[in-house]
């Protein structure tokens, strides 16, 4: 600590993520959608050019959003704004920071820019969130400076099964570390391909040293509540709000669905409340079974 203000410390970055706990972070592609998300009680919005369902449908290379679009969203709402950079694309991250975005998502939803290295996140003042499918991957991201982890799931599908698998895997591997003898943690670190010091810290804490959210395929209030019951600290909803079964959701439907997911996340242990908010929401976003997606089109395998 210091008598002079220090910006970008671990405590300031990780603390920002702590303040989002229990909340829902919503993907938005316009300022109008950002306002609907804020109105519905989103704890932050994720500014991106296309939601994952459209990226999946349209294909091509997917990149950081236009700075004009990000500025428009920052000016439209008072809640925190996040934006996505491609995996390894440190210049996109520099641009996002210069726009004064509050949080960067180094995201497998965009096309990776580097198939070997992730961004050195310790060089940035603003915090990063990264996806993970297991504990080793989560700890490698934290070692690079990530201040928040989310399950990857399989974005843009409306199929929650991969998010469930990733959350259960991370929890199971944490529980395993907690029961190990001290002298077994060296081999555990080797097996997890993660730094020994972080492995010891997780074994001692019984949880990650940063906030753990869930993402990827969460489409309904019940999906959100299930992920919270499985131990998520909060929820990212991508395509699930502004996409409906028939394509683009009307603003009224999107607002109703967004409010329902916020309420289900807060009352995740109360089936009566989840039942109430699930009534009359209309058709959920079009679903794609993860099993039907060819392996080389799956986003969860991006990042290493």
């Amino acid at each position: 600590m210091s008598v002079e203000p220090l910006v970008g410390t671990d405590r300031v970055k990780r603390g920002m993520a702590e303040m989002l706990k229990g909340g829902v972070i919503m993907d938005v592609v316009t300022a109008e959608q950002a306002k609907i998300a804020e109105e519905a009680g989103a704890v932050a919005v994720m500014a991106l050019e296309r939601v994952p369902a459209d990226i999946r449908a349209q294909g091509g290379v997917s990149r950081m959003s236009d700075p004009d679009m990000i500025d428009g969203i920052i000016n439209a709402v008072s809640i925190p704004v996040m934006a996505k950079a491609r995996i390894g694309h440190f210049v996109e991250a520099q641009v996002i920071q210069s726009l004064k975005v509050d949080f960067i998502d180094e995201s497998e939803v965009l096309t990776p820019a580097d198939y070997t290295n992730h961004i050195d996140k310790k060089k940035f003042t603003i915090p990063f969130v990264c996806g993970a499918t297991n504990l080793g991957e989560a700890l490698r991201r934290i070692n690079e400076g990530a201040a928040m982890i989310r399950s990857k799931g399989e974005a843009g599908t409306g199929d929650v099964s991969n998010a469930v698998t990733h959350m259960r895997t991370i929890r199971k591997e944490i529980n395993r570390l907690s029961t190990m003898a001290e002298d077994e943690l060296y081999v555990a670190a080797k097996e997890l391909q993660a730094p020994y010091d972080l492995v010891v810290e997780v074994a001692r804490l019984g949880c990650l040293p940063v906030v753990l959210f869930t993402a990827g395929g969460i489409a309904t209030p019940a999906d959100a509540a299930m992920m919270m019951q499985l131990g998520a600290d909060g929820v990212f909803v991508g395509s699930g709000i502004f996409k409906s079964g028939s394509g683009v959701a009307s603003n009224e439907d999107a607002l109703r669905r967004a409010k329902a997911i916020v309420r289900a996340t807060r009352h995740f242990n109360e089936p009566d409340v989840i039942a109430e908010v699930s009534r009359g929401l209309g058709e959920a976003m079009v679903g794609i079974n993860v099993a039907d997606i060819p392996v080389h089109h799956r986003l969860e395998d991006r990042g290493w």
């Binding site: 600590m1 008598v3 920002m16 303040m19 603003i126």
Partner: peptide
């Protein structure tokens, strides 16, 4: 300001005694 301006610093706080308090400011 926004998160990029968030900071921590030591502060004197009345009535808590002892040394300065480590204060973390987030948005």
């Amino acid at each position: 300001g926004r998160q990029v301006d968030s900071f921590e610093m030591d502060l004197e706080v009345q009535g808590i005694g002892g040394t300065a308090f480590p204060a973390v400011f987030i948005r």
